[in-house]
Design a protein around this nucleic acid. Structure first.
Length: 273
DNA sequence: ATTCTGTCCTGTAGGC
DNA sequence: TGCCTACAGGACAGAA
């Protein structure tokens, strides 16, 4: 589900509500979302600790605990992390883990498809995802010279590469299509053939789209809800994703869909070369 | 080494 | 109404 803009929105929301709260209780309603340890060990390591920071890396939320370690949430396709101020309300049906906090509120992890993961780790470097993930696209390490160097040996198509978390962090299926549309680059272009001007356009479009999507609090196509349980508004500004057979806003051409690396790709056949 | 396919799951939308 | 198929914001292991 959530890509960088959605996870960043959740991170900012949670920072307002759960910072400096102690985890007083943890109820696990489905043990399948707890990875890397048994449920009792997960509870033993996390319970009683205070959340002193809420960070994001790629599409993962990292809650820093005061005494030791980190509580990591990767929502994957359908995970939601929602803060409820009133802990007496009934939990939703999809609730898999419920954290009761010292301020009386609750942090609820919902996950319809159960692809997501919630776990404790003493050290983020123990986790392959964090050890091997690429640069953050909104930070300085993501720039045109880096892109020029990074694509040299990449003969595969640019769209799956943009979604490869080892290449660059946080971009998923929606934003990959939107970024390439704004860059005027065809999703099947072999990455290493992109010229400098095209990489400049790609770099600029990546940063602009992600920033605009964060400003709109993310994209709610189906499941996504922010840290307060509200929808994001970027769906209104999506130009190609899930718009097969619609007319391009720029060239009046037709938006096409095809399957690439097992995922739907959308692009305008008129503008993207 | 790089790239692609199948898999883990549940729910919903659309065609007939 | 129901039954069937396709598809869904991700990340891996294993295969090509």
């Amino acid at each position: 589900m959530p890509e960088l803009p959605e996870v960043e929105t959740i991170r900012r929301d949670l920072s307002k509500f759960i910072l400096n709260q102690t985890i007083e209780d943890i109820a696990v309603h489905d043990k399948r979302v707890i990875r890397r340890s048994s449920v009792p060990l997960f509870i033993k390591r996390s319970k009683g600790q205070k959340i002193i920071d809420v960070q994001r890396r790629g599409k993962a939320i990292v809650m820093v605990l005061d005494r030791q370690g980190f509580l990591v949430v990767q929502p994957m396709m359908t995970g939601q992390l929602i803060y409820q101020k009133n802990g007496t309300l009934e939990a939703p049906k999809a609730a898999k883990v419920i954290f009761t906090l010292s301020n009386g509120g609750r942090l609820i992890y919902n996950d319809q498809r159960l692809f997501g993961r919630v776990y404790f780790t003493a050290d983020l470097r123990e986790i392959d995802y964090f050890r091997t993930i690429g640069p953050e696209p909104l930070e300085k390490g993501f720039n045109v010279p880096w892109l020029q160097k990074a694509i040299i040996k990449k003969r595969g198509p640019i769209k799956p590469l943009l979604m490869d978390q080892h290449f660059v962090a946080g971009i998923g299926n929606i934003y990959a299509s939107e970024i390439l549309f704004r860059s005027r680059i065809h999703p099947q272009r072999s990455a290493y053939t992109l010229r400098k001007e095209e990489l400049q356009a790609l770099h600029k479009a990546t940063r602009m789209i992600l920033k605009e999507a964060i400003s709109s609090r993310g994209t709610s196509m189906r499941n996504y809800l922010d840290g307060q349980g509200e929808k994001g508004q970027f769906k209104n500004r999506i130009l190609v994703y899930a718009r097969e057979n619609e007319i391009c806003v720029d060239c009046k051409g037709v938006i096409k869909r095809f399957v690439q690396a097992g995922r739907s790709t959308f692009y305008c056949e008129g503008c993207q070369k």
